[in-house]
Design a binder for these strands. Structure first.
Lengths: 122, 122
DNA sequence: TCTTATCGACTACGTGTGTAATCCTCGCGA
DNA sequence: TCGCGAGGATTACACACGTAGTCGATAAGA
C-alpha cells in the first residue's frame, strides 16, 4: 500500500536516493535548478512525502534530517512493471521490441543486452 | 503538443484503439467492467478526449462515431521513452537489465529477445 | 534584552482527475 | 400533438498536485 509518488515528489526522491540523510536546506540546494522551485515548494513536497511515509525524518538539533523509506529499486521496479502491464500486456519482449525499433538502438546496446541475457541463461 | 492522456482516459483509448469508430454507447459497453463506470463517466471522458483533440467524432444520424486521432504506437512510444528517461537515464540496457532481474524472465523470453536482437543487427 | 534571520507547520489557490448527476434537445410512440 | 426516453452537453464536487505565501517558535546577534 505504498502511496503514489507524484512527478514533483519524484524529483525530491531522486535527491534523497542519491544522498541521505539530508536537511531540508540541503535538499533544496540539490534539486535540479531547471525546476526553478522556491525553498517552500521543496519543503511542501518533503512534508507530503513524510505524510505518505515515503520518507522519514529525525530531529538533529534544531533541524530535521530526511531519508527515504522506500528503495529506489523498489520504486523503479513498480513503475516499470506498471508500464509493462499497461502497455505491453505484461510481457517483456514486446516492450524491448518496441523500444528497440523506435529508438535507434545501437550495436553496443545490442551487445550489452546479449551479454546480459547470456548471463541470465545459466 | 499532443495533450496528456490520464489514466482513466487511457482505458477509453484502449477501447477505441481496439476497434473504431464506435458510438458512445458501444464504448461504454466495451470498457472493462472492473472499472465499474457509469455511462456518464465514460461520456465525460470521451468529451475530455475530444476537447484535447486526442479523438474525433463525426455525426452519423443522431449519434456520434468516435475514433482515435493519435496512434496507439505513438502513445506507447512516448510513454515508454518517458519512463526510460526518468528512471534509467534514457538507456535501454539498464531497463532491460532491471526488468530481467526482477521479474523472473523465462528462457523463452530470453530466446525471443535474442532472436529479435539478431534481426536488428543485420 | 530586543531584533532578526531561520526553520518547520499551516494555509492557499488554481488546475487536473475521477466520478457522476442534471439539463437540454429532438425523434418516436401514444 | 405531447410527453418520454436516448443521447450529448453542462455542471458538480472532492481530492491530488504544483507552486508558494504566511505564521509561530527559536536561536543568534546587536
Amino acid at each position: 500500500m505504498t502511496e503514489r509518488i507524484s512527478d514533483a515528489e519524484h524529483a525530491v526522491m531522486e535527491v534523497l536516493w542519491d544522498e541521505s540523510p539530508l536537511t531540508a536546506q540541503e535538499v533544496v540546494e540539490r534539486v535540479p535548478a531547471e525546476r526553478g522551485w522556491s525553498a517552500n515548494t521543496v519543503k511542501t513536497l518533503l512534508g507530503r512525502l513524510l505524510a505518505k511515509s515515503i520518507i522519514a525524518h529525525e530531529e538533529v538539533g534544531r533541524r530535521y534530517h530526511y531519508r527515504p523509506l522506500v528503495a529506489r529499486d523498489d520504486y523503479v521496479a513498480k513503475e516499470s512493471r506498471k508500464l509493462m502491464d499497461r502497455l505491453f500486456g505484461g510481457k517483456l519482449t514486446p516492450l524491448v521490441a518496441h523500444l528497440a525499433e523506435r529508438d535507434a538502438i545501437t550495436d553496443q546496446d545490442i551487445a550489452e543486452i546479449e551479454a546480459l541475457l547470456k548471463d541470465l541463461k545459466s
